[in-house]
């Protein structure tokens, strides 16, 4: 059974909150408009549709857009060998989602990592604390407004951090941009970089067309 069929069945099961499945290069994505029901949807996906393996949970910081965070669940089923990507949005004021640890135990550490790096809390998580940085670290490093070099922090007897010398870096490509010069500028100022450049570039029409439909379906249309 193809992944698209299974995704269609999942949509038929939850018609108001799951969008039409989008397919790009063999990968199927569905969007969930009501993030509070994620546990219910995931439990149905595991029990009834055979997605017994949670491959990954990851989060995206859409800095500048209104639901600031998107949390992406990658599901897979050993029985039918099909992948599914499930996306939900979380706004910054809320910054909270129900946990899926009750469905897949592996979600424990993935959700801890999302809490550590992005600041999204998970309700009913058995042990929600930082996993990569140390407890008491005051920032969320993978947010777009946090500089790559880091910010100074001090916790006596536990850890300290200092900003790293970047020397004109970070030497990574900016996404989007119509030519190489826009994508790889000679000088980057890290504080202002991700804040306006990325957000501005991604919203430009020519950049969106260059992306194609790789970003999946938009918000769910309710009837």
């Amino acid at each position: 059974m193809a992944a698209l069929d299974i995704a269609q069945q999942l949509k038929a099961r939850f018609p108001e909150i799951i969008s039409d499945p989008a397919e790009f290069r063999g990968e199927v994505t569905v969007r969930l408009s009501d993030a509070e029901r994620i546990t219910e949807v995931c439990a149905a996906a595991k029990k009834d549709f055979g997605f017994d393996y949670l491959v990954d949970i990851s989060s995206v910081d859409n800095y500048g857009d209104d639901p600031r965070f998107t949390v992406v669940y990658h599901l897979y089923g050993y029985g039918h060998h099909c992948h599914l990507r499930l996306k939900t949005d979380v706004s910054e004021e809320k910054s909270e989602l129900p946990t899926v640890c009750t469905v897949w135990r592996t979600a424990n550490w993935h959700e801890r990592e999302i809490y550590d790096m992005m600041g999204i809390r998970f309700r009913n998580h058995p042990d929600l604390r930082r996993i990569l940085m140390w407890e008491g670290y005051p920032y969320f490093p993978l947010r777009k407004d946090f500089p790559l070099a880091g910010k100074p922090s001090e916790m006596p007897d536990v850890a300290f951090s200092k900003p790293a010398p970047l020397e004109g870096g970070p030497f990574v490509t900016i996404a989007g941009g119509k030519d190489r010069i826009a994508r790889e500028p000679r000088v980057r100022i890290p504080e202002t970089d991700a804040l306006d450049t990325n957000a501005r570039l991604e919203r430009r029409k020519d950049v969106q067309e260059a992306h194609g439909h790789s970003h999946g379906p938009g918000p769910v249309e309710t009837k």
């Binding site: 946090f146 500089p147 880091g150 790293a164």
Partner: peptide
């Protein structure tokens, strides 16, 4: 600090 000029690595 090597190639890791970042927030988490002691330089």
């Amino acid at each position: 600090g090597g190639m890791y000029r970042s927030y988490a690595v002691l330089q």
